[in-house]
Amino acid sequence: MSMPALRRAGPASLGLSRLRANGAGITIAALLSLFILTPLVNVAIWAFTEIWRYPAVIPQKFGFRFWGDVLSRGDVHLAMTTSLSLAAIVTALSALICLPASYAFARMDFPGRNLFFMSFLTVYAFPKFGLYITIATIFLGLGLIGNFWGVVLIQLVSTLMFMVWIPVSAFQNVDRRQEEAARDAGASPLRVFWSITLPQVLPAISAAVLLTFVNTFYETEVAWLIGAPEVRTVPLLMVRFINSELVVQYGAVLSLLLWVPSFVLLMLVRRFLGAQALGRALGA
């Protein structure tokens, strides 16, 4: 194809590829909606349902009975406070101790580096239930059973792998030439870190923070094995609602209540993640 021909074909093929890309997008969006949303919509309908039996397409009886029940309970408010502070404290502590470690693993050489790096795998590789039972015995001697800080400590350990590993690859992939150029131009190391390194690893860090926060918030085993009877979190309440209340509706209402703040959080983080990813995609 000659150059002028290519130039002429340019806009048309560009439009075609955009159309094709959007066709792919619509397909992905449709399939994903079906897969992800069907159970969620179901839960949402259940939250407003009092009786729904096969084969009715529309529930036999709608109502807000379970909303009143859930909202008027003192334990729901208490559990919400406990869960939020637990997740916030664990995430903050985790970021505080893991991000420097992550940087060190990515950029520095020191004895035992690979061994230490691999040691974080044990957090995930050993089946949790067996592990926590052993830990519970150890914690008992330390007086950390039924203690908020005991739960924080062990939750903190279970977040380590995400917080160290996810940013490591990002730190490794930071463009070293840019850093060197900035340093050659007289920028201080801190300044280089702040304006060159950090922006490049921020998407990975925010992904790690998001995962840590959410995983901590929705964790049940540790909260039960280490935290009972003192520490009562929202998911524990949900387990109790669903397992022992006979009706799914309490759990459905509670999660619907949680989805509102979750969605806001997700949108905030998404904008953050998306802007970075899209920004780089456009060559910025």
């Binding site: 926590y132 039972i133 519970a136 015995t137 008992l140 001697g141 007086g143 059973i145 039924g146 039960w224 094995l225 009972a228 009877p229 003192e230 109790r240 397992n243 022992s244």
Partner: peptide, 29 residues
Amino acid sequence: LNVVSARNNIAPIVDRALAALGSDVDPQV
């Protein structure tokens, strides 16, 4: 009285009491 729901999950709490036996640790059970 602090009423705690322990459905299907009682064994670890029993283990906790057993582990504390003989020490002066309060198993909180």
